[in-house]
Design a protein around this nucleic acid. Structure first.
Length: 835
RNA sequence: GCGGACGUGGCGGAAUGGUAGACGCUGGAGACUUAAAAUCUUCUGCCCGACUGGGCGUGCGGGUUCGAGUCCCGCCGUCCGCACCA
């Protein structure tokens, strides 16, 4: 028996033992209740970071807990392995993206294994493996054949120097983030997935996700942006094609004073073809930036086309048509009718160009002539609106829609902000899109037996652009339909496609198809998905869409992939700057009394804000040396302590030291032999309460509370005199601690002389009768202020409790002889005397 | 601008409308030790007080209630998401 628990030796030994006994393999054929615990799989950037450790520690506690409860648990790990960083590494270091990625995976796998996570490594997958992306290609073709994939011209951010498409996030102040070149908008033929087909289902489905954070559901709801209104047409006064507009406020139809169309609207282009000034105006609009800051400050600009339209409810009423820079072609019909009195943008626009501002909504009919000094986006009653006058907003809107439909000039419509998902990326390191372009046959799917379409290895990153385009032979092929010379699609799929179905592949991985439906359904939906809130919209929405798409084409019988979702907080650390403003890493600085100085030369250092660990701020702590120094359990324990899991956790030396201290404390408790006879009822109650509290905390993902309960139990055991109960309590403590600190728990368990593995042991049960004490402490208040506390037997009746409280000397002193006016008794809790 | 979350000791944080500050960290005092580390004991919201004790206290101002950190109304502040979405 050693005096100290030595994680350096014990961690590896228990990890090997778990692996040897295959403790964490998920058996799909098991008839035990199944639980699928999943954390968002990592991008293999090279090394794991503290955020990973926190994320996976949380999932691991839940997975281990469920397993101990007798569940068959699926807790897998894999790699989101396609993406840009591998290509950047290729360009910078002349290494193939694949070689770089697989080397990173090997490193990170070992790092994760050293943390002792209860993962089923037999199901490990990497999205850059043809054995994975080949099945993804098959699913893509399934969706293609079901009509859920299409190709169309779309504007992209084009970097003319790197000859590549950039994501919006890669455009900084209108310039490419790598090249610094001014980004152009260019039209390219792109592949799209019809996520808008599912817009309504995706909104409705949010209502069933009661184990998701409200915040995430709301973010998705806003992103999809469902709004109801009226789509209707204005006829041009001089003939020509009608202009369709969409509005959410059809009740304001008599407040219209102009029509505004997008610079990209067909009518705008038609006008520009005839008028040079219009063409110039449109060009000026296009030059404007797209960043949030630019839009915020952008002035509303308009150009009067001279074209007029007829109001649908009054053939005599003409409205001017303006081209306006604030009208988006992508939303609605690319045209809107301006109601300045009741829309902020329209008000600004009308004020600037001297267009009429007419009140058509008021709080009441009497206020129909109140002046409009700012846009009033209110509901109320319709005024100055002919047959609508006096109708409340909602009824007026319904009436206009009814009339439009009856008269045939418009119809009620549901409009979404969500747009179809463009999945084409002009990049090498991604899933090749399994399509062949034939001059005669068009876009033809690659025949199934030719899948996977594998990325060529012999590519060079010496030149800008997509290496697949430049490859001498890869894209050359024959048309599967007609046999003519044809060209492979050289675009690859957005990496979000890879992560849209990996959780299904984890559940079932046959070699010959993406997954087995029955096996996948036996695990799905994921009971608890854990990851960062940064994926609240894109990844989680795409995965929901993909699952629903598979359901629609009959490949799977579930609509929602993630039953429970938890978004954990970040791991943060203080930042430090030297005198010249450059960032310093934590190991370059030290505390000297009240100030921080640089270790190297003692120069003063300015501590900055506590921020998310990031390379750019240099405030990261590498988990590997921490694990080497303190052991896996101390790191895991710290990651789960103190801060509630949804909030940020600040890394601190004191924190990890404290965790390591506790690990040793439990070890001492378990390894110090103390034999005793008889039951210690007070301790037994403490243990049962702890079992109930820890279980409840883990199920509620309140790991900080589980940790606090274990601290309390440890203290209680330490203070208890030797007894049979005490020995039992230590054993129970180890079981309760084992999901969080599994190596220590196994080692101490063995030190107690037990042979079985805690990893697969049963979770302790508790006796509800022992959760309540025989005596309770009654709070005694006078006028709501605490004056005394009394110990009384549980179940004391009201009269007795009142008498006991009134007998208190402290209460009598407060009452000073006067009789109480009223006494409130909450049984077994408190007595409040109102004087 | 729209939407959302959150404000509790020196710090992280506990608290079904019922004893605010569990638990951890930091700090003080003490024990053990030749000494240090480790460990153990004990104190640690603020103010008055030698003590018994008393007053104040969950961002600010109101309200509901026998009783409010918790519920309601109005402010202030911080953070997050979306953003010219008709």
């Amino acid at each position: 028996m050693t005096a100290r628990f030595d994680p350096g030796e014990a961690d590896a030994r228990w990890q090997a033992r778990w692996e040897q006994d295959d403790c964490f393999a998920a058996n799909s054929a098991s008839d035990r209740p199944k639980t699928y615990v999943l954390e968002m799989f990592p991008y293999p950037s090279g090394r794991i970071h503290m955020g990973h450790v926190r994320n996976y520690a949380m999932g691991d506690v839940l997975a281990r807990y469920r397993r101990m409860q007798g569940h068959e648990v699926l807790h897998p790990m894999g790699w989101d392995a396609f993406g840009m960083p591998a290509e950047n590494a290729a360009m910078e270091r002349k290494v193939h993206p694949g070689a770089w990625t697989w080397a990173n995976i090997a490193t990170m796998r070992e790092q994760l294994k050293r943390l002792g996570f209860a993962l089923d490594w037999s199901r490990e997958l990497a999205t850059c493996d043809p054995a994975y992306y080949g099945h993804e290609q098959a699913l893509f073709l399934d969706l293609f054949e079901a009509g859920l994939v299409y190709r169309k011209e779309s504007e992209v951010n084009w970097d003319p120097v790197d000859c590549t498409v950039l994501a919006n996030e890669q455009v900084i102040d209108g310039k490419g983030w790598r090249s610094g070149a001014t980004v152009e908008r260019r039209k390219l033929a792109q592949w799209f997935l019809k996520i808008t087909d599912f817009a309504d289902d995706l909104v409705e489905g949010l209502g069933t996700l009661d184990q998701w954070p409200d915040k995430v559901r709301l973010m998705q709801q806003n992103w999809i942006g469902k709004s109801r209104g009226l789509e209707f047409r204005f006829a041009l006064a001089d003939g020509g094609e009608d202009i369709a507009v969409f509005t959410t406020r059809p009740d304001t139809i008599f407040g219209a004073s102009f029509l505004a169309i997008s610079p990209g609207h067909p009518l705008a282009e038609a006008v520009a073809a005839k008028q040079a000034e219009a063409a110039e105006f449109i060009a000026r609009c296009r030059a404007g930036g797209t960043s949030a800051a630019e839009i915020e400050t952008a002035e509303k600009l308009g150009f009067d086309t001279g074209v007029e339209v007829v109001h649908p409810l009054d053939p005599e009423w003409r409205l001017p048509v303006w081209i306006a820079n604030f009208v988006l072609m992508e939303y609605g019909t690319g045209a809107l009718f301006g109601v300045p009195a009741h829309d902020a943008r329209d008000f600004e626009f009308a004020s600037k160009y001297g267009l009429p501002i007419r009140r058509v909504v008021a709080a009441s009919a009497e206020e129909s002539d109140a002046p409009v000094t700012e846009a009033e986006t209110i509901e109320g009653v319709a005024v100055n609106s002919r047959f609508l006058d006096g109708l409340p907003t909602r009824e007026a809107a319904a009436e206009v829609i009814r009339r439009a439909e009856a008269e045939g000039w418009g119809h009620g419509k549901v409009q979404y902000r969500l747009r179809d998902w463009g999945v084409s990326r002009q990049r090498y390191w991604g899933t090749p899109i399994p399509i062949i372009h034939c001059a005669g046959c068009g876009a033809v799917p690659v025949p199934r037996e030719q899948l996977p379409v594998v990325l060529p290895e012999d590519v060079s990153f010496d030149l800008p652009g997509n290496p697949l385009d430049r490859h001498p032979s890869w894209s050359r092929t024959d048309c599967p339909k007609c046999g003519a010379a044809a060209r492979r699609e050289t675009d690859t799929l957005d990496t979000f496609v890879n992560s849209s179905w990996y959780f299904i592949r984890f559940a079932s991985q046959p070699a010959d198809r993406p997954f087995d439906r029955a096996e996948a359904e036996s695990w799905l939906p994921v009971a608890q998905y854990i990851g960062g809130v940064e994926h609240a919209i894109l990844h989680l929405l795409y995965a929901r869409f993909w699952t629903r798409a598979l359901q629609r084409i009959g490949r799977i019988g579930i609509a929602e992939p993630f039953k429970g979702l938890f978004t954990q907080g970040m791991v943060t650390h203080e930042t430090y700057r030297s005198g010249d403003g450059s960032w310093l890493s934590p190991d370059e600085v030290r505390r000297d009394g009240d100030i921080w100085v640089r270790v190297a030369d003692g120069a003063p250092v300015t501590p900055g804000r506590v921020e998310k660990m990031s390379k750019s701020k240099r405030n990261t702590i590498d988990p590997e040396p921490i694990v080497a120094r303190y052991g896996a359990d101390a790191v895991r324990w710290f990651m789960l302590s103190d801060s509630p899991p949804e909030r940020d956790l600040e890394w601190s030396e004191n924190g990890i030291e404290g965790a390591a201290r506790f690990i040793q404390r439990v070890w001492r408790l378990a390894s110090a032999q103390s034999s005793g006879e008889g039951r210690d009822q007070a301790l037994d109650r403490r243990v049962h309460k702890a079992v109930a509290a820890v279980g409840e905390a883990i199920e509620g993902l309140q790991f900080n509370k589980a940790v606090a309960t274990l601290y309390e139990l440890t203290s209680a055991i330490e203070k208890a005199p030797p007894s049979q109960s005490r020995g039992d309590a230590v054993a129970t403590l180890l079981k309760l601690a084992s999901p969080m600190a599994p190596h220590l728990a196994e080692e101490a368990w063995r030190a107690l002389g037990r042979q079985e593995l805690l990893a697969t042991a049963a979770w302790p049960s508790f006796d509800p009768a022992l959760l309540v004490d025989e005596d309770v402490t009654l709070a005694v208040q006078v006028n709501g202020k605490l004056r005394d506390t009394l110990v009384a037997p549980r179940g004391l009746d009201r009269a007795a409790a009142e008498a006991l409280a009134l007998a208190s000397e402290k209460v009598q002193r407060q009452l000073a002889g006067s009789a109480p006016r009223k006494v409130i008794v909450v049984p077994d809790r408190l007595v409040n005397i109102v004087a």
